[in-house]
Every structure is written in structure tokens, then in C-alpha cells.
Amino acid sequence: MNVKTLLLCLMTFFPLPLWAQGYAGLGGSAEGFDVPKAGYAFDFPKDHGPHPSYRIEWWYLTANLKGEDGRDYGIQWTLFRSALKPFETDDWQSPQIWMGHAATTTPDGHFFAERLSRGGIGQAGVISQPFEAWIDEWRMAGPDFDTLTLTANGEDFGYDLSLTAQGPLVFHGDAGYSVKSADGQASYYYSQPFYAVEGVLRLQGGDVRVTGQGWLDREWSSQPLAADQSGWDWFSLSFEGGDKMMAFRLRGGRGDFTSATWINADGSTEAIPNGTVQLTPLRTDQVAGREVPTQWRVVLPDRGVEIEVSALTPNAWMGTRFEYWEGPVTVTGSQEGIGYLEMTGY
């Protein structure tokens, strides 16, 4: 065992590409950990904070931004929590492991960084009120969940942004109980997709003032995936006119599992069941030595949605310890808009 194995274990809890290897003991069981149940009553602001008795959890923010230079940008700020054991201590022996990913995507480049820490000693963590999520100097914090400042730094990029919620929290699946496979694996899953964003991107060419919109996902679980599921494709799309859609496809050996949430401009939602939304790759690009779909057809017949989703920058590859694709997209077709795409397992 060592850290690579540790990371291997760690990452298998996340929607990242190692499911196919079916790592022993991680697909199904959840000894000692709590398991999501339908009908959970969320308790805010407490539930914005961490849930150490669940195996995995994340605070996952993406934003589509427009620079005052007229160019399109995207940023990602993610804090993952992974529990080796279902409790927390206040020293080096804490079994809570934290991992941060941050990225900035420009029309011609993609910059990212990664941080690792354990809980307990104060290097990383989340508190719910006033809200603060941090790892090292990366920080997402504010008096409450609706008003946040966000910073992250890598070797060659950084950003300081402020987020202001323009709408309510949105709950996926059955009131936040999101089923992830036909066998019933599930997670608690809610989002704040209505952030207005402004601030500064620090790029190698200099600082760029930006404005745009952000989408924050909150999810926690203990056994989110079926053993045969090898990766996923996840879309968060904002259409002109204010409607939004979250859609994902879990690619499994026994067939795909799809799920989506239609979010109206006022924040009301409709959960779209497995098999309804159609997600089809249109073209692939050679990215980091793999064939990665960078253009998709997304069809949701009930809503008259028939759109093409294209990557702003095909090379939005997260070359972190466990690699995946995450980047801003543009939407054309029956609806126009922008959004973020995450693809794992390629």
C-alpha cells in the first residue's frame, strides 16, 4: 500500500475512471458508513457542511465566464472528501481525506492544479455556518451559501471570484435522492445552478476581469456506483431564457443508465427517469492520447430539445493523479446556451 494505492481507493469513490477495474470492496458494500435513503429531509445550513459518516462527498463548482476582452472562459473549483473510516479526529490520524481540483479553461488553453490533505489538522475542511470550504489557500467562503468568494491558485493560473445566488437550491432525483444505477445505488444530490459570477482570472498574459454564471453541485453518498459502471458523461447546461438541464449517463457493462433534471428559470424542477434523455457522441478528439467525445447530440423529446453540445476547448483534460475531462461547452440547436461537461472513464 502507498499513496498511489490510497489515491486509487480514494478515487474510486469519485465519478472518475477506475470503476471498470471493479476495485475490491468499493463497488457495493459500505460497512460502518451511512447509506442514502429516499425521503431524506435536508437540514440547511447544516447539510452544506461535511457528512463524515458518508464515504464520499463533494462541493463542485463550475462557471462559464465572459472576459472583458470578449473571450469565453470556464473555471472549475472542486473539493472532494473521502472517508477511510466513518468518523473524524483532530490530529494526523484523521481518516478524512480531502482533495481539491481547480482549473481555468481559455479558448486556447486549459490550466489545472490539484491539492491533497487530510482532515483533522485544519489544512482542509468545510464548515457550514458561516460557510467555508477550503484546502490549503484555496477557499470558497461567505456569510452564507448564497454569497460566496472563491479563490484558487496553480503554478500558472489563479482566480478571485465572487458568487451571488440568483435563485433557489435545486434537488435532483426524488427530492435530492438521486438514483445512480438500475440496482438502486444512490446519492444525496442538490445544486445551486443560479450563481451570478464576477471577478478576476489571473492568467499568464495578465489579469482578466470576467462575469458569468456558476453552477455548484453538492453530492454525498457511500456506494454510488454499480460494479460494472466504467465511467460517466455529465452535462450541466444553461439555455437562453433561463431554463437549465442537468443530465448524465453512467456507462455500464450491462447497459447505460441515464438521468436528468429539467430546471425551469424559476427553480422548479422535473426529474427525468432512466432511458429518456438521449446522449450521443458526434465527434471525438485526440486528447491526452485518448479518443474523447468533444461534440454531443442531446435529445430530450418531451421538452423538444434537440441540441448539439460542443467543447469550447477540446483539450480540457484534467491531468491530475486520476484523469478526466472537464470543460465549458456551447449549445446550439433547438436551444442556444452554455454549460459544462464532465467525462470520465475514457
Binding site: 500500500m1 502507498n2 499513496v3 498511489k4 494505492t5 490510497l6 489515491l7 481507493c9 480514494l10 477511510l84 473510516k85 494526523w92 481518516p95 481525506i97 491533497l116 490533505s117 487530510r118 489544512q123 493523479r321
Partner: peptide, 24 residues
Amino acid sequence: DMVAYPALPAVTEAEQSAEATEPA
């Protein structure tokens, strides 16, 4: 600190030689 310093060669090398152990 095996979490913050995972690139330590001894640790990565040990992976090949030592039996796999749960990170926990």
C-alpha cells in the same frame, strides 16, 4: 505526511514490493 507528499519515491516504490494494504 503520506497524503500531502504522495510523490515520495520510497512510497511509490514500496507499492510494487509490499503487499497491498487499505489506505485506512
